[in-house]
Amino acid sequence: MKASAFAYARATSVANALELLASHGERARVLSGGQSLIPAMNLRLVSPELIVDIGELKELRGIAVKGETLVIGALTRHADLLKSSDIVKCAPLLAAAVAHVAHPAIRNRGTIGGSLAQADPASELPACMLALGATIVVRGPGGERRIAAAEFFTGIYETKLAPQDLLVAVELPVARKGSAHFFQEFARRHGDYAIVGLAAQAVLQGDGFADLRLGYFAVGDRPVLAKAAGKLTGVAITPALLAEASAALSDELDPHEDQQATPAMRRHLAKVLLSRCVSTLLNRPDIHRGASA
């Protein structure tokens, strides 16, 4: 299929982009990497009157470490995240996750801002933002707003972004000493959207966790920071405790049904991921075997 006719404007600055968005409102769409928008337009699922191409706004591209904060410009491409030594050092979870984002051709075009603004509940990066405690930086007609990732995602393809807003950057706290991460997703094929995935960030202390943040994705209409993690922090981990956390996780998730999985299967896989995550981070294969038997 072919997209219906649309007007096209290449924004010359963030201010210019915001002006264009302000004057066209919901009839305009922002084009960054185009990996979700263009297919949707070609399928005529969306027919914007105006495309605001922000691709040339160099100020929105790049990765910088500012003290204890890692700042990633919205136009930074997945391929750049994958190559960045700053990402590996300061947010290794993100580096692990990006390798699972689609395929190289898509990673070469797709951007972190585009992925977060699209807010597909089965995509990797929103869950990483939750696990990493990211702040989403947004500019709109009223100036700049800083939104915690936990507040940002509001539903399937829905965020706190208004039609006149532009997502300009994300800020992540630089990984603390003693921190560890776990990323795994179950997808039918490499590069597919996950059936269930987990992006986890932890701070290890002795034999257990001082902190554990479990960012689940593809388990509902938005990424979920699982509260069950609370049961596993600051205590010695036993198979019984893991089973208790697993049951709590199952209760707290409200997964959807689609062609890949029933809610029951999603709950089951989420529990498998929890068990694999804990046993991997603590290097305790005994825990996982106990949980899956």
């Binding site: 179950f186 039918r188 059936i195 890949q260 999985a261 029933t262 029951a264 299967m265 089951h268």
Partner: peptide, 13 residues
Amino acid sequence: LTPQVILTALGRI
């Protein structure tokens, strides 16, 4: 042989 089919056959879900 989808994961759903196999997990169902194994009685896991």
